[in-house]
Design a protein around this nucleic acid. Structure first.
Length: 595
DNA sequence: AACGTCAGCGCC
DNA sequence: AAAGGGCGCTGACGTT
């Protein structure tokens, strides 16, 4: 087995060719990174002309089936032989040039940022850590816990091994893991699994790139929003003036001192006022007639913005512009970029999470501060009613698939689901989430009558989950198997509750998880297209919406590209099935104008 | 002082 | 507006 260490321009760290044009990569030691940084400084184009690492290292690999001039037909055939394909005709969603390898990384979240820092861009990759989790769960197991012991740098890739491995030896481990995963992917015999692994890995690249790019953010606007809501920024340890006034209103309403942040004190205060409330949730208090209720509600809303998305938050998460694209104009002083850390596959369903920054919970109250830079626009696009559309697709319910032709699915279905749009919405959401309260039970019954295939799909997922079984998304992402404790307590009261809860989870999993993978494929295709055509930068992703930052002159083109990517994502998952999943792009200056 | 859990609520 | 799956983040509170 040939092992190559590629120095300088084009390749960094340890690499080793693998079958099928893939290249194992490991960022060996700080020394290699230092060398890259020195090189990047010399080449003096850290942003606009990011180098394609793949373009050079591919020649170093000399791997089979990857020579220049390979006919398109052969490439397609090769894809069919490959258990790890990507998008249509383009393995792993990269641009698919013959000399562009698939980089096999132990953990892109760890290994890719230094490469980005050095000015490199990976076209496509396989993330072994993310793939391992997906494959383990397909097999009904839990992936090994991520601990210091299983740190790839210590040479123990998904297995505990006492002796450290370093230098080229790590590549042997990477290769073994990759081959093992290929074998398991093929053995799983799930037609979408290769696409899922490719999309997850592409997502890892997108996440690292987006964290680096950041969301354009206007500190001045943010400060103005906060001042309007809270008053001027207070000195440390003090509440903002307007927030303190709200706290005083709560105190006045109760007629005695208390801390409105303390649920214990608030609950006691309601009890002292002769009101028998179980807790202080907003919905529990909604039916309570007491002057403190409204004051408390407003206090909590504002306190939330202050503590979670206020000045301290901006200090911690908004950094200098460093705009990769918006080069020419010097950015105004209060411009910055919000740079959250994304966790690909952070939720079991495959949705992303964040590790700090709260990017996935940005309140609408501060979204006005997310603003395009001068001469640029934000193109924000969200998929309307993504989950019910995917329920139609995965269940094969013909009547519901036909209804996805409409822009507003709920209005389209209303005549058959209770008459009003709002009732159709409850019927669908309750079917997908397992709701039973209020009108829900009756409306779900309507679902059963009018759309039996769709109804059966979520019901059987719930039944499987209650019994401890496994359910999978369209592409094959699989729920975690129940733990030992789940089985042991099965017949107790707690066990029954846990089983019902798991049923609700698996019911929702097939829909939410398929939505997550559709969005992942969309992101992967969009990333490739934006880069190939040099149109703009992906800056934000939130479950079913994307935001691209681009020069104003490109905005309409970007909108069209986003719509095309959505259509391509739908075809990647569902082929000729006549399901429609529209994505509505909107060109705006501020994120608050979207939606 | 540091850490974990809970209640509550932000987003999809 | 409700119903209800998935998250992250906060301050309070209880424990070490």
């Amino acid at each position: 087995m040939e092992v190559a260490l590629v120095h300088g321009r084009g390749g960094e760290g340890w690499t080793m060719p693998l079958p099928g044009g893939a290249v194992a990569y490991h960022p060996d030691l700080a020394a290699a990174v230092t060398a890259i940084e020195a090189d990047a400084r010399q080449s003096s184009n850290p942003s606009g002309g990011a180098r394609e690492v793949g373009e050079r290292a591919g020649t170093a690999s000399g791997a089979d089936g990857a020579g220049a001039g390979v006919a398109e037909k052969e490439r397609v055939e090769d894809r069919h032989a490959d258990p790890d394909p990507g998008g249509p005709g383009r393995p792993d969603f990269g641009h698919g040039h013959p000399d562009s390898p698939r980089w096999v990384l132990a953990d892109a979240a760890h290994d890719y940022p230094p490469l980005l820092q050095a000015g490199a861009r990976l076209d496509r990759c396989r993330d072994l850590r993310l793939a391992e989790r997906i494959l383990s769960r397909v097999e009904g197991r839990e992936p090994p816990a991520v601990t210091a012991e299983s740190d790839p740098d210590a040479g123990t890739l998904f297995e505990r091994e006492p002796e450290p491995v370093d230098g080229p030896a790590i590549l042997v481990r990477l290769q073994a893991t990759w081959l093992d995963q290929r074998r398991r992917t093929a053995a799983a015999d799930l037609p979408g699994l290769g696409t899922l692994l490719a999309a997850e890995s592409a997502g890892a690249l997108v996440a690292a790139e987006m964290s680096r790019t950041g969301v354009p953010f206007d500190r001045g606007v943010h400060d103005r929003l906060l001042r309007d809501l809270l008053g001027p920024r207070p000195t440390k340890g003090m509440r903002p003036r307007k927030l303190q006034a709200l706290a005083d209103k709560v105190i006045d309403a109760f007629g005695h001192q208390l801390n409105p942040d303390s649920t214990k004190q608030v609950l006691a205060a309601f009890h002292a006022a002769g009101l028998d409330v179980k807790n202080t949730h907003s919905w529990e208090l909604a039916s309570v007639d007491h002057p403190a209720v409204e004051a408390l509600k407003v206090y909590r809303e504002h306190a939330r913005v202050w503590s979670a998305f206020g000045w301290n938050w901006a200090d911690a998460w908004v950094s200098e512009t460093g705009a990769p694209g918006a080069g020419a104009d010097p950015a105004p002083a209060d411009r910055g970029r919000f740079r959250p850390v994304y966790m690909v596959g952070g939720a079991d369903t495959g949705r992303w999470g964040t590790d700090g920054g709260g990017a996935l919970q940005l309140p609408h109250a501060v979204r006005e501060a997310i603003r395009a830079e001068p001469g640029w626009k934000l193109v924000a696009a969200d998929a309307a009613q993504l989950e019910p559309r995917l329920l139609a697709a995965i269940s094969g319910d013909r009547a519901m698939i036909a209804a996805t032709a409409a822009d507003d699915l709920y209005t389209e279905l209303a005549p058959r689901l209770g008459g009003e749009r709002s009732k159709a919405k409850i019927a669908l959401i309750s079917a997908m989430y397992g709701g039973t309260a209020g009108d829900a039970a009756q409306l779900v019954q309507l679902m059963k009558d009018r759309f039996p295939a769709a109804f059966h799909r979520v019901e059987s997922a719930a039944r499987t989950g209650e019994k401890g079984g496994l359910v999978r998304t369209w592409l094959g992402r699989t729920v975690p198997a129940p733990g030992e404790r789940w089985w042991q307590t099965l017949n107790s009261e707690d066990g029954i509750r846990a089983a019902t809860g798991r049923g609700r989870f698996t019911r929702n999993f097939i829909v939410q998880g398929t939505a997550a993978e559709w969005a992942l494929v969309l992101l992967a295709l969009l990333r490739r297209e934006l880069h190939e055509r040099g149109l703009g930068e992906l800056v934000f992703f939130l479950h079913d919406e994307v935001v691209v930052h681009c020069p104003a002159t490109h905005a309409d083109t970007v909108g069209a590209v986003i719509e095309q990517a959505a259509e391509a994502a739908t075809r990647t998952l569902f082929g000729d099935m006549p399901v429609r999943i529209p994505l509505r792009p909107k060109v705006v200056d501020s994120y608050s104008e979207a939606k």
